[in-house]
């Protein structure tokens, strides 16, 4: 088990290094002088020089790469260019916290509904309920979240005062108020992911229901509920866990459009604004954070699967 974890960590580390190379290369490959772009067309030569230095663009690319690794290790990406005096760490931390609240609430709504629908569809395979869950889920998935966001705003937030157009509650609001403001963005996430997660769960459950161990369990005389709880779900939900893990990176950094529509200051918004303002320190810090979340989430998902399924644990550990 330990060997398996170490092997997974090493692979993640290589992946992270490759991403850091890409991040280092981007400002160097950009047409024109990035420092000029940041400082503005009429910046003084001194200002230009200071921006170039803080970007490290005078150094060779390998040196910039080493510097970036240092930044990642110390989690210190310096100060923002466009928001003077604010550290990248502080900005990312605030945005990360906001994203965390949104993602947690969205998953708390999305996972039970989608997994429940997937299991139900598998149990009632080929029934009308099954077909509707699969088709509706498929149709709704991959509608961009900003699209479902504005449609929810128009048809829920405007006629019904309970739903809010903005996701940013007044400062000092209670937990309930916070959740109330986050409800529509969370529902948009549900719309995007319902079909995907329900489908994966359905497929996993069908495979598991067909398996010999399930037949044995039924023949032992266990009730349906017992069979599901003790035998089916443990195996059926492994793909769902894996998929949820890979999606966490997207939920933390990819909901740019959604955060925009609901005026919500999450990580996606922070990175978008940084890209717009050529605020490279914030950009780097933000992107590295999203990548780290992805890596930790996929690692976490693999560990949960190993815990759910000793066979996978042994197979992967033995290979490593």
């Amino acid at each position: 088990m330990l060997r398996y974890v170490l092997r997974r960590l090493a692979l993640s580390l290589v992946t992270l290094l490759i991403l850091l190379i890409v991040i280092t290369l981007i400002p160097n490959l950009a047409p024109g002088d990035p420092a000029r772009k940041i400082a503005g067309a009429f910046a003084s030569p001194e200002r230009l020089q200071s921006v170039t230095e803080s970007l490290g663009l005078d150094d060779s690319i390998p040196e910039q790469f080493i510097d970036l690794i240092g930044d990642v290790v110390t989690l210190d990406f310096g100060d923002s260019f466009t928001r003077p005096g604010q550290s990248v760490f502080g900005l990312v931390r605030a945005a990360l916290w906001n994203s965390f609240k949104l993602v947690l609430f969205a998953l708390a709504i999305t996972l039970p509904i989608s997994i429940g629908a997937g299991i139900w569809a598998a149990y009632k395979k080929d029934s009308i309920a099954d077909r509707s869950i699969v088709t509706v889920g498929l149709a709704l998935s991959s509608i961009p979240e900003f699209v479902s966001g504005v449609i929810l705003q128009a048809f829920l937030a405007v006629p019904i005062a309970f739903f809010k157009v903005s996701a940013d509650p007044p400062p000092g609001a209670s937990l309930a108020t916070n959740l109330n403001f986050l409800l529509l963005p969370a529902l948009s996430v549900l719309i995007v992911y319902f079909g995907y997660i329900a489908r994966i769960t359905r497929a996993g459950t069908i495979t598991s229901l067909d398996a010999d161990y399930t037949r044995t369990a039924f023949m032992k005389g266990l009730t349906t509920r017992q069979v599901f709880r003790r035998h089916v779900l443990r195996n059926a939900l492994q793909p769902t866990v894996a998929v949820t893990g890979t999606q966490l990176g997207y939920l933390f950094g990819g909901l740019v459009g959604l955060e925009f529509v609901f005026n919500y200051p999450g990580l996606g918004r922070l990175i978008l604004d940084a890209a717009r303002g050529a605020d490279y320190p914030v950009l780097r810090g933000g992107v590295v954070t999203v990548a780290l979340i992805y890596m930790l989430a996929t690692l976490g998902a693999d560990l949960i699967i190993a815990w759910m399924n000793p066979r996978a644990r042994l197979a992967q550990g033995g290979e490593g």
């Binding site: 992946t15 981007i26 950009a30 950094g253």
Partner: peptide, 24 residues
């Protein structure tokens, strides 16, 4: 495969934003 993983660890939309703001 490692390089592919590296790309997949950041949402496409974020990478697209960064590239397009940098390169026009």
């Amino acid at each position: 495969s490692r390089i592919i993983e590296g790309f997949l660890s950041v949402p496409v939309i974020l990478l697209a934003i960064i590239v397009l703001f940098t390169f026009g």
